[in-house]
Write a protein that binds this DNA or RNA. Structure first.
Length: 801
DNA sequence: TAATCGATCTTTTTT
DNA sequence: AGATCGATTA
């Protein structure tokens, strides 16, 4: 029926992409599942579809809701959609969590939330829990916090029978229940609540649900494989009979199971939303064929996939390189060397400090190599350190993505706690954090008296109190009963809070709950300087903090009156810290918000929901190498990628098996498919971990790639350079449980001695391709594994079991 | 009550 | 190696 030539923005799509964009459903079908392999242009499809719906189908932009998982993705989606169709700016494009927060700001009263609720992060969660689990070791509290977070991801309340699946202990259930009570009394929410509570509100209030169903005619979800159960429920509640739902995802890129992501969401989508059409995007425009081949070889070892075959549109290219290196220091210098050679070799004539103008690329490979073409990928954040020092030494410019240190700094968290308490005087977590900072004589006993006066620990006796839970009010009431020291300390704290409040304009204390708004839905915080990114910190003029515009006044007043500013001023000089400067940066960031209660709330919410300091003025355009965790690379691409630490125990971690191992494989797949032109793997023979140097074996994933698919450099460990094709027959299943090694040397229970590690016991024996692999538990708690055939000499047998 | 020293673990991955 | 927890001392 489409006779007229398509507009250009549709013309450039390939047939599958176009089909996905033009699909709008009919009376039978009103949902679409797009299975989009890595690099297949899925963002283009989503953004084009948004534009198409508005432009060609005449849809009101405000009736479109598109959710993603990261702020970066949300911003990119908004930018690209707007570029095609400006009106897309009025569509609601947000992360799931930011949508949840938006929803609760308006409808939170239906879940008994006060209008000024603040969002607790994982640390706050732990703090609150530790007041509930008094005396419990921190590790125990963290486990509990994790369990509660997971429960909310799975949409499980404390009284749900299925809670046993998360943690079957009675203690867990009761602790979760008490946590919820305390959180409710405080009047704040945690991350999980941002999804769970909206679902509950929608279920209990049909009129609200129908309002939302009327508003959003089209709902799209990006990276759907990362959705958890609660998010699925939210999607269901938001969609009525007339809602068109389009989800996009790739089951092979599901890497957040540990956080509650449920791959079944995407696998079972067609069943849950009957009348679903499925479109596959399998043309990869990003990587050369050999790169895709290596990536696919690994992920093909997984079971339980929808199945999908990526084809490279780019054709042949360089084989991925597998480099064997002695240790992590050599690894770092190998990477540094590789990068500098490539960069220096390319632009010997234009080595200017400023932005190297990209000459129009005639010859692809060597000609145009810049630092920013390169990315170093690693499994854990801790691994970035070695590269940072090496790059610093060699003057290689780099940026570390995602180590969100700024907001985790003590002084910043303190300042934020003061701000939170200002918003909500029932915020016990914030109160405990800062009431005695810097130390001014308010100890545990004083704090206990205050919380007791506020009625916090007594669940049912709030009635007699004028302002239940209000810790500021309680402090004032109980003040005479405190020791002189504590009394004056509390007074200072209260004075600081008061000063902070006075810095806010009186005007708007109203947060009209149900004003279903005229505001734009797109994530749009003030987007100037974000703290932590400023290259050269402005040296503070004179002494102390400088208040600027808007909300910064409030931040500065709080820091000054509380004594935190002065404390850091003196401490910075002694310890050579930057803490006062950091506080200044926080104040600078705050200056973008109005000095009102509402502005303060927005500021706090923005910080809670988007801590990434990425994609802003500093760093984005500069020519630097990217250092990044594998998880953080999702959605990104680089010309040249080095995947480091590809060793058993690091990647995959050695406590991984079954489903967890499959997730690690998908992570490998994600990492490898980031590369456009060149891909490198580094595997070290030894690695320093918690201070000790440990022998390492190459990652099992590397064996899952056929020998011809890789170019190996460096000294391969014995047994790695096997003849090709050996691994397919006995693939992963062969390693069964045995008690004695096939060479007869070792038996489970044998006592051994190792020169470095001391005494240990043989705990496990497996048959690998290179003979028996023996796992030893040492008395120190460490464990190691070694190849019986080649490494037995390091272990002396003490006794046979 | 606060600060300091030593011992004892620890380490995923993140909205 | 670094953080964190606990006990000891000022």
């Amino acid at each position: 029926m489409v006779k007229a030539p398509l507009p250009q923005y549709l013309e450039i799509l390939n047939p599958e992409q176009r089909e996905a964009v033009l699909h709008t459903g009919n009376s039978e079908t009103h949902s679409l599942l797009i299975l989009a392999g890595a690099g297949s242009g899925k963002t283009r499809v989503i953004t084009t579809k948004i534009a198409y719906l508005i432009r060609e189908k005449g849809l009101d932009p405000r009736s479109i809701l598109a959710v993603t998982f990261t702020n970066k993705a949300a911003r990119e989606m908004a930018d690209r959609a707007r570029a095609i169709e400006p009106r897309a700016g009025d569509a609601m494009l947000r992360t799931f969590h930011s949508f949840g927060a938006w929803f609760l700001r308006r409808n939170g009263s239906l879940a008994a939330l006060p209008p000024g609720f603040v969002i607790y992060d994982d640390d706050d969660m732990v703090s609150l829990l530790s007041t509930i689990m008094e005396g419990a070791p921190r590790a125990e509290v963290k486990i509990m916090a994790h369990g509660i977070a997971r429960s909310k991801d799975y949409f499980l309340s404390p009284d749900d029978p299925e809670l046993d699946l998360i943690d079957h202990r009675k203690l867990f259930r009761t602790t979760y229940a008490r946590y919820e009570e305390r959180l409710a009394k405080i009047g704040n929410v945690d991350f999980g609540d941002l999804i769970k509570k909206p679902v509950e509100i929608l279920r209990q209030n049909p009129e609200v649900a129908s309002r939302f169903r009327d508003r959003f005619k089209v709902i799209m979800v990006d990276e759907y494989q990362d959705a958890n159960i609660a998010q699925f429920e939210l999607l269901k509640e938001l969609s009525g009979t007339g809602t068109y739902i389009c989800v996009v995802g790739d089951d092979d890129q599901s890497i957040y199971r540990f956080r509650g992501a449920e791959v079944r969401n995407i696998l079972e989508f067609p069943d849950r939303f009957p009348g679903t059409d499925i479109i596959r995007l399998e043309r990869n425009y990003r990587s050369t064929a050999p790169i895709l081949h290596a990536a696919a070889s690994v992920v093909n070892h997984n079971e339980g996939r929808l199945g999908k075959e990526l084809r490279s549109e780019r054709g042949p290219g360089k084989k991925p390189v597998l480099a064997f290196l002695p240790d992590q220091d050599e690894e770092a210098s190998f990477c540094a060397e590789l990068i500098s050679k490539a960069v220096k070799g390319s632009d010997s004539n234009t080595v200017k400090e400023s932005e190297t103008k990209r000459k129009t690329a005639k010859t692809e490979s060597i000609e145009n190599c810049r630092y920013s073409d390169w990315a170093i990928l690693y499994r854990t954040n801790a691994q970035s350190l070695g590269f940072e020092t090496e790059f610093l030494r060699r003057r290689i410019p780099y940026r570390v993505v995602g180590s969100l240190k700024f907001y985790e700094r003590e002084e910043i968290k303190d300042a934020l706690a003061l701000l939170s308490f200002l918003v909500n005087p029932r915020d016990e977590v914030a109160f405990r954090r800062v009431v005695n900072k810097p130390s001014r004589g308010v100890g545990p006993s004083a704090i206990d008296k205050i919380t007791e006066e506020a009625g916090i620990s007594i669940i049912d006796e709030l009635d007699g109190l004028s302002s239940p839970g209000d810790l500021a009010a309680a402090s004032r009431r109980i003040s005479p009963d405190l020791s002189a020291k504590a009394r004056s300390g509390v007074a200072v704290f209260l004075k600081a809070i008061d000063a902070g409040r006075k810095a806010l304009k009186e005007t708007d204390s109203n947060f009209s709950p149900d004003a279903d708004d005229d505001e734009t839905g797109t994530v749009a915080a003030p987007s100037a300087d974000i703290p932590g990114t400023t290259k050269k910190r402005p040296t503070l003029k004179g002494e102390g903090l400088q208040a600027g515009e808007g909300l910064s006044v409030c931040v500065v007043r709080l820091a000054e009156e509380s004594g935190i500013a002065e404390h850091h001023l003196t401490h910075d000089e002694i310890a050579g810290n930057q803490r006062l400067n950091n506080l200044q940066e926080l104040a600078n960031a705050a200056s973008l918000y109005p000095a009102t209660m509402r502005g303060l709330l927005e500021f706090l919410e923005h910080i809670e929901l988007d801590r990434s300091m990425e994609e802003n003025s500093a760093g984005a355009g500069e020519d630097m190498v990217t250092l990044i965790t594998l998880h953080n690379t999702k959605g990104l691409e680089f010309k040249r990628v080095i995947m480091t630490g590809v060793e058993q125990g690091v990647f995959p971690r050695d406590d991984k098996n079954g489903d967890d191992l499959e997730e690690e494989r998908r992570l490998f797949y994600v990492g490898a498919t980031r590369a456009m032109d060149e891909l490198y793997f580094c595997s070290c023979g030894m690695r320093r971990m918690f201070g000790r140097t440990m022998p390492m074996e190459p990652s099992s994933f590397l064996r899952e790639i056929d020998r011809e698919g890789l170019r190996i450099i460096g000294k391969a460990p014995y047994g790695f350079a096997r003849p090709s094709g050996t691994d397919s027959a006995g693939s992963p299943g062969k390693a069964g449980k045995i008690t004695r090694s096939s060479d007869g040397r070792w038996q489970i229970g044998d006592k051994v001695f190792h020169d470095d590690q001391g005494y240990g016991t043989v705990a496990e024996i497996k048959e690998g391709e290179d003979g028996p692999i023996v796992k030893v538990h040492f008395e120190t708690g460490h464990e190691t594994r070694f190849l019986s055939l080649h490494q037995s000499s390091h272990f002396t047998k003490i006794s046979e079991d």
